[in-house]
Nucleic acid binder design. Sequence first.
RNA 1: CCAGAGGUGGCGGAGUGGCCAAUCGCAGCAGACUGUAAAUCUGCCGGGUUUUCCCUGCGGAGGUUCGAAUCCUCCCCUCUGGA
Length: 313
Amino acid sequence: MKMIIITGQTATGKTDLARQYCQKYNGEIVNFDSRQIYKNLDIITGKDIYGKFTSVKKSDGFDIGYYPTELKNLNLKLNINSWLYDIVAPNQYFSSFDYQRIALPLIRHIVESGKTPILVGGTYFYIYHLLYHIETENIKPDWALRQNLVKKSVKDLQMILSGFINQPQAGLNNSDFQNPQRLIRKIEIARSSGLEKKPSLSFSLKDYFKNIDIDFIGIKFKNKNRLTKTITERVKKRIGQGAFDEVENLLKKGFEKNDPGLKTIGYRQIILYLEGKISKREAIELWITKEIQYAKRQLTFMKRDANIKWREI
RNA sequence: CCAGAGGUGGCGGAGUGGCCAAUCGCAGCAGACUGUAAAUCUGCCGGGUUUUCCCUGCGGAGGUUCGAAUCCUCCCCUCUGGA
């Protein structure tokens, strides 16, 4: 069986490519963009998928959106089924683990229905988990613990962690050892596995499908100028599409700036503007800058995956 | 023209005689990444190929001092108020 994964830097036209493959291989699109997972985040995340909502499957408390979509850009009615868009509310926590749990059976479903799964997205972390599995087994977030720990300083977190693990840095590199988010998770793991032995549930896509043939494509910009130019244009386009209104409406609906979905490039900067902390112009410039930096980070992360076949635009 | 404030590294902004190549933030460059990942974090960041080493350096030109971004003199420029 065949599966195609398309990833790469933001604004490289991944979705368009995915659509082409859909036609070629009788495919269905499976999103792995951590932002397009969220409902109501449309313009700024570039969710250029639209269509009628026809059915919902419940899986572990999450809705799996099922949309027959039309191709806006190609001006064609392709009727491509697209999955895993709009499956959680902007104020809901959603992790790579959640993603894996939902995506795996979904991919199986697509394969069994005789179609080719075509995964598209820029969140390499999600695909990493899906493909190569995770070793931390199924230690769930301990929200009470996290709530308590976020107040602590990095130094305190390091101390707490060293109370569980006798290694000086608990197997963390220097960067992670100073990263509160990582330290908290490490403490969570250390604490949990100290309490009870959890059975290993780690599994990967390749365990799931023995004879899977994966085309793993990455798209990146040829140079920084192209990247800067494309991102700048895209931000301006999204402003024209109503990016500012989108943020205002979300806030009116009661979503808050610290909700997982709103801690996203574009939304954050516009919120700063709406709060009166920066000018509109500054917000736009910041948005562009953050987006460029993000594209760089994406590439740094993805580069380490030798399975990705790169294309330049 | 008078009065007041000020000119610091790509930008913002500390420092007001030695501990200053100059706190810090931003931008830039490189990197990390195993249930928040469009998140979070790390390193570098005047020049000299590494350096506990050298050079240039805080508007300009002089001067005081063992020693100045920091004090003095003159000049240039900017901003605010007055004409």
